[in-house]
Amino acid sequence: MARRLNSVSGFLLLAILWEVAPRLGLADRQFFPPLSRLLVELFSLAATQEFWGYLLSTARTWAIGLVVATAAGVIAGLAIGLVPGARTYTHSTIEFLRPIPSVALIPGVILIFGSRYQSGVVLITYAAFWQVLLQMLYGLNDIDAVARDTARSFRFSRTGFIVHVAWPTLLPFLFTGIRLAASIALVLAVTAEMVIGTYGIGRGIVVAQTSNAIPTMYALVIVTGLMGVGINVAARGIEQRLLRWHPSVRNTAAI
């Protein structure tokens, strides 16, 4: 019995429940349409141009924000990590700025960009930047330790050190940072669309809700979930492929 509880059965159970409960009147059909109704809605949405417009717009904001945040995180990380003393002096500032919720920037970006997609990019950049920066600093810290050990036993040239020690040590940290940043970026892209009204799936959800198109609303929420799963799966896949050679499978908090 226990062996039969595999990964498919969980989904199956949920799907059956979602289909049957509204039909039997166990859940309000108006608020919880049966799953089949949502899937039909999803397919008909996929035939509209508007849906793909939403999807591409959200994906674009996400991608630009992630790239900017990664670049900024890497540059700031290198600057803080490599300039002697910089880490000590920036420590308290980073600890103060990091817990500031990214959404605090919303009124500011509305004033500057209004409901253009750049608003989303700024929010994403702020939130995702910290993930990359922190992992960069952890990684550079690690290089210090590795460098101390290897410097004793090997003589590396400067480029040799970077190619053989620094880069391979840093890479897994950087990747962890980017993976965490990628899922946070999606959250903020959707947030910007919902609160600020930039074009994308988030706005689609709000529009569907206010116009009482409940199946459409659910279908779009499911799409954001699928995007999230897609990002997670892709990031993990790339990470495993790129870092297959790496001895340590990096453990981080599940987010």
Partner: peptide
């Protein structure tokens, strides 16, 4: 049994559930 379901639900950006 539960992992894939949880994987999906946690991937939904929480603000999307506000409406």
């Amino acid at each position: 049994a539960a992992e894939p379901v949880l994987e999906f639900f946690r991937a939904i950006p929480p603000p999307a559930l506000i409406p």
